[in-house]
Design a protein around this nucleic acid. Sequence first.
DNA 1: CGGAAGATCCACT
DNA 2: GTGGATCTTCCGA
Length: 205
Amino acid sequence: MSRFRPLPLSFYRRPAEIVARDLLGRFLVRELEGERLVLRLVEVEAYLGAPDRASHAWDGRRTPRNESLYLPGGHAYVYFIYGMHYCLNAVTGEVDVGSAVLLRAGAPVAGEERMAENRGWTKKVRPGDLAGGPGKICRALGIGRELDGVLLDRPPLYITKGEPPGEEQIMASPRIGVDYAGEAAGWPLRFSVAGEPHVSRPRPG
DNA sequence: CGGAAGATCCACT
DNA sequence: GTGGATCTTCCGA
């Protein structure tokens, strides 16, 4: 089945908002200790780089932390935030652009048990909430800073064709947690699959 | 060199 | 709905 064939790197070498929409419904696959953990992506956000105040690459900012954000499209950008969470991005566009798509939520397709185990079996971990948030995705899939900068078209971390939704099922809304970003805070760069229960809150309206 | 803030999550009221 | 956890990173002085 070609549902599990990795998307080519050319998929990512387009504008972030285009890639973001196109990533919905795709399968994020993490190979961990011989096990295959799979999420169907249901919520993503585009970050545009230098012109986008919410982006880590705003105004061309370039530091050791965000260096991989400037790699060519198709690389992973993993960063540590709030002293306890990792977030996973797919870098988009050409080299040095600094645009990316934050993977915010996914619906479990395979490896649920291992994901729940990775989450730590806390009370809040239910089958439907294994990866309903950017921090939860990384926790469930065992993703940390060691995967920063890897290519997303091969193991141990890749994205496949999956089961994309119809265009009419895609919802756009402002991004989460970027209120500080002035005008950019209102840009409708958060995309989610309508009716998907795994989308993190607040749900788009 | 110090302080402030952060693309979050969870427990509690 | 609100606040605490927890610590790296970054910027200004």
